[in-house]
């Protein structure tokens, strides 16, 4: 094989095995797409009707009932922000020990590392809406369920990235502190923490940004925030009020994104 390549002096980007794998992957994607299209239950009338219906809906949304904002939307929007922020803070509190458990250069036990990873993966595999459903069942409807849902969903994300940052920390300074007889807590605080601090803030900000978006839906299952307003306005077919809520969500999400980008630029 190599002999032939040398002989012919042909440069190929990929080995035949790689090309075959790529071809198989393309084929599988196309096959899956076609199979899905043929079997999915879509009512044809709905499909042909969709553009007209969307236009009709947008028509009813416009103009948005902005006068409704102070009375009906503002408080819910602020609650959404609180849910996102408190949820993120709480998730950090929960994520730090799990990250320490799953970082191989800190916890020197494969079984415990695996346990930590399992916790992180389960947290990420359950959508925040499902977490919200579970916590509504436990704590009843309201912002508490929403905050916990955001926190539990974020643990996996924050913990995973934090554990990666810990594992990437330079071993030299840590070794030096251990050689000086520092107890484990001091090694963490003075050896690891200064090294992972930039990553930590970056992850926390990033997750807060995501959580602002996520917390807007929690109200759909009764877990507080602006989703509640959205849901009740839809149930009453008050589309101009739905538009107001959507505009408010859009504005807050964009503002959060701008804020996070600015903070990252300044401090990191």
């Amino acid at each position: 094989m190599t002999g032939a390549v040398l002989h012919d002096r042909i440069w190929r980007r990929f080995t035949p095995a790689e090309r075959l794998a790529r071809f198989a992957a393309y084929l599988a994607i196309v096959a899956a797409f076609v199979a899905s299209l043929r079997t999915v239950e879509v009512i044809p009338e709905f499909l042909y009707d969709a553009p007209e219906q969307m236009a009709d809906l947008l028509n009813r949304m416009w103009p948005a009932d902005l006068a409704y904002y102070p009375a009906g939307v503002h408080a819910a929007l602020v609650e959404t922000l609180h849910i996102a922020t408190l949820g993120t803070l709480f998730s950090i509190v929960l994520a730090v020990p799990v990250a320490l458990l799953s970082a191989r250069n800190i916890t020197r036990s494969a079984a415990l590392n695996w346990l930590g990873k399992l916790v992180l993966v389960s947290s990420r595999s359950v959508n925040s809406l499902v977490w919200a459903l579970l916590f509504v069942a436990v704590f009843g409807p309201g912002a508490l369920a929403g905050t916990l849902a955001i926190a539990f969903r974020s643990v996996g994300f924050v913990g995973k990235l934090l554990a990666e940052a810990l594992e990437e920390a330079a071993p030299g300074p840590v070794e030096a502190l251990r050689a000086a007889g520092a107890p484990p807590a001091s090694v963490l605080l003075k050896g690891f923490w200064p090294q992972v601090q930039p990553a930590f803030w970056s992850v926390a900000l990033f997750r807060w940004d995501i959580n602002v978006r996520e917390s807007a839906v929690l109200g759909l299952v009764g877990a507080g925030g602006i989703g509640l307003v959205l849901n009740s306005a839809m149930d009453l077919f008050q589309w101009d009020r739905v538009a107001t809520a959507l505009i408010a969500i859009f504005a807050v999400v964009i503002a959060a994104e701008v804020l996070v980008t600015q903070i990252r630029k300044r401090i990191l």
Binding site: V40, E41, I43, F46, A50, M54, N231, M234, V242, V253
Partner: peptide, 24 residues
């Protein structure tokens, strides 16, 4: 900016229940 679920609920209201709303 909008969570997929919020987009989904708008599509459901506009074009009706079912997979099509989810896909869109």
């Amino acid at each position: 900016s909008f969570h997929p679920i919020i987009v989904a609920i708008v599509f459901v209201k506009a074009i009706g229940f079912g997979a099509l709303a989810g896909i869109l």
